[in-house]
């Protein structure tokens, strides 16, 4: 089986109605955009992949990551990174603690701090380690959120309309940043959106869901 994120015959039902059915594969470093109106089940698909599907839904089909079937594993062992509309930075932790939360435990303390500072530096947030996330601007928070996900060393990246809350010019910037980093780490990217600009920036195939 090939590297990357595979969805084979994934179908999602809500009660008796079938919401969607997807059969696709995303190679490393490539992107797939799923577009569709709200209620078409695109975010539900992401929940199924991350392992947090609401009990109201029923799903079938297998999800593979680098050839390994992951849909039977618990959510926290799947190595799937996800970014949401909200940055969801933990409000009770400093910026540095937020980044450290996802960093693998096997990395020794001294190295952790260096890795975190380097990550902050790479997105223009040097010296933000001890800051309260609530004091950051929207763009800064989006960048911290991205680095938190990347530091947790995911093998695939899911994006659940992560740019829709940002202002027009900020959106452009953050979008570029996210896709550049994903490409640099050659992650398969699955983007869910209803913004055509997002889909074009992602650069990959586009899958439309109808309702």
């Amino acid at each position: 089986m090939a590297d990357g994120l595979g969805l084979s015959n994934v179908t999602i039902h809500k009660g008796e109605t079938r919401l969607l059915s997807v059969d696709t594969h995303i190679n490393r470093g490539e992107a797939l955009t799923i577009m569709g109106p709200s209620g078409s089940g695109k975010s539900t698909l992401l929940s199924y992949i991350t392992g947090s599907l609401d009990l109201a839904f029923k799903a079938a089909g297998s999800v593979t990551l680098d050839g390994e079937e992951i849909n039977t594993k618990p959510a926290h062992l799947r190595h799937i990174g996800i970014l949401f509309q909200d940055d969801l930075l933990f409000p009770h932790m400093s910026v540095g603690a937020n980044l450290s939360f996802g960093l693998d435990r096997s990395i020794p303390r001294t190295e952790r701090k260096d890795r975190i500072n380097a990550a902050l530096d790479s997105v223009g947030l040097a010296g933000f380690f001890d800051r309260d996330p609530a004091t950051l601007s929207g763009g800064q928070r989006a960048r911290v959120s991205l680095m938190r996900t990347l530091l947790s060393n995911p093998k695939a990246l899911l994006l659940d309309e992560p740019f829709s809350r940002l202002d027009q010019d900020l959106r452009q910037q953050v979008r570029e940043l996210v896709f550049n980093h994903a490409k640099a780490q050659s992650l398969p990217v699955l983007l869910v959106t209803h913004d055509m600009d997002d889909a074009q920036a992602a650069g990959g195939a586009i899958l439309r869901l109808d309702r």
């Binding site: 929940s47 991350t50 947090s52 926290h76 799947r78 949401f84 909200d86 969801l88 939360f101 947790s152």
Partner: peptide
């Protein structure tokens, strides 16, 4: 409480117990 924090926690590799106690 916004359950998306829980999803993010799991996506970052934190076990349910760790999400419960730390988040």
């Amino acid at each position: 409480w916004n359950r998306d924090f829980e999803r993010v926690g799991h996506a970052l590799g934190a076990s349910p117990a760790r999400v419960f106690w730390r988040i």
